[in-house]
Amino acid sequence: MNGLARICWITSPLYLLAGMVFGIWMSATGDHTLAPAHAHLNLIGGVMMALFGTFYMLRPNAAVGALGKIQVALAHVSVWAMFPGIIMAISGGSETLAKIGAILFVVSMLMFVAIVVRSTSPRSA
Rank of each mutant, 00 (worst) to 15 (best):
A63Q: 01
V79M: 05
I10Q: 08
S108Y: 03
V116W: 06
R118Y: 14
V77Q: 01
W9V: 01
A50E: 05
H76K: 07
W25G: 06
G68C: 09
I100L: 14
W25R: 12
V79K: 00
C8A: 08
I100D: 04
M109H: 02
F55C: 02
G93I: 05
A5S: 12
E95Q: 13
F55R: 01
W25V: 15
A39F: 09
K69S: 12
M111G: 12
L67A: 15
H32L: 12
G30A: 09
I7C: 05
M88A: 13
G3H: 04
M26A: 10
V116G: 10
T96V: 13
G101V: 01
I103A: 14
G3W: 00
T96R: 08
A98N: 01
L110A: 15
I87C: 09
A28N: 12
T11K: 05
F83K: 02
I103E: 00
V113Q: 09
I115E: 02
G45H: 02
I100F: 08
T11L: 15
G53A: 09
Y56D: 03
L104I: 03
L74S: 06
I90F: 11
G53N: 04
I10S: 03
S12G: 13
L17Q: 06
A62P: 05
S78N: 06
T33M: 12
I87R: 03
A98V: 01
L17N: 06
I70H: 08
P60L: 06
H38N: 13
H32I: 06
S119M: 05
A5L: 02
S94P: 04
F83P: 01
G85I: 07
D31T: 09
M26G: 02
L14F: 11
S124Y: 14
F105L: 10
R118N: 15
I103Y: 09
S27K: 13
I86N: 03
G45A: 13
S108C: 07
P84E: 09
I24E: 13
G92T: 07
H38L: 11
M88G: 01
H76E: 04
S91N: 14
I100M: 07
S27Y: 07
G93H: 11
F52S: 06
M48I: 13
A18W: 03
T120L: 15
V21D: 05
V106Y: 01
H32S: 11
I90K: 14
A18V: 13
M1Q: 01
P13Y: 11
A5V: 03
L67V: 08
L97C: 06
R59Y: 13
T11V: 09
E95I: 12
S27L: 15
I70D: 06
G30S: 08
A102Y: 00
M49T: 05
L104Q: 02
V64T: 10
R59Q: 11
S78H: 04
M109L: 13
S119H: 15
G85C: 12
L97D: 03
V64D: 10
A125V: 15
I90N: 07
M88N: 08
H32A: 09
V47C: 04
P36C: 10
Y15S: 02
I100E: 04
G46S: 10
V47N: 02
A28H: 11
G23R: 07
A50D: 04
